[in-house]
Amino acid sequence: MDQRQAADAIKNIETTQQRTQTLRHYRDYGSVIMAWGVAWLVGFMTQQFAPDAAWLAWGAAWIGALGWTLTRPAGKSDQKALATWIICNACITLLLVLIEADFRTIAAVFAIGLTAAYAVMGVWAGRRFLALAALVLVSLLIGWWVVPDALFFALALGGGAGLVLGGLWLRQP
């Protein structure tokens, strides 16, 4: 075996291991993303069609999704990332309470936050996350400008049902 063949083999190994790691990220995060998709679907659907019950629905959805995340391999192994995510969400929530933001603004801010989180994961963990970021952003933009009366419904479909399907897609090798 000459040096060129050895270099090709080493390159082959590195590429394969990188690809395997990316697929592992997809596999680990797939069910977590599906859980948050369900939370968004339940929360925004309730907000659109039964706004009086929205706080209850959101509370139950968040507790369920957070509990699922904490018991998954991705949540267990990546405690610092999860803690960062929770701190960011708590700060954003506090800010929105302080400025007495309405539900539309709250929804838009969290959708943008989720878009940013998936975009960052797209850069670090795998490009499929970029598609999820685009999905959430597009559903927000359509809901905000095209069908403002159905903003929450658009977010339920794009950020909720879309993420459930996106999570399933991530789990495919």
Binding site: I13, Q17, T20, R24, R27, P173
Partner: peptide
């Protein structure tokens, strides 16, 4: 070449890999 990829993938992951994942990476 293909067995090298299979071994590289298995060596890099702490858990067993399923057939579909190995098919994709190899």
């Amino acid at each position: 070449q293909h067995r090298l990829r299979i071994m590289a993938a298995l060596e890099s992951d702490r858990n067993p890999l399923d057939f579909a994942t190995l098919k994709s990476v190899s």
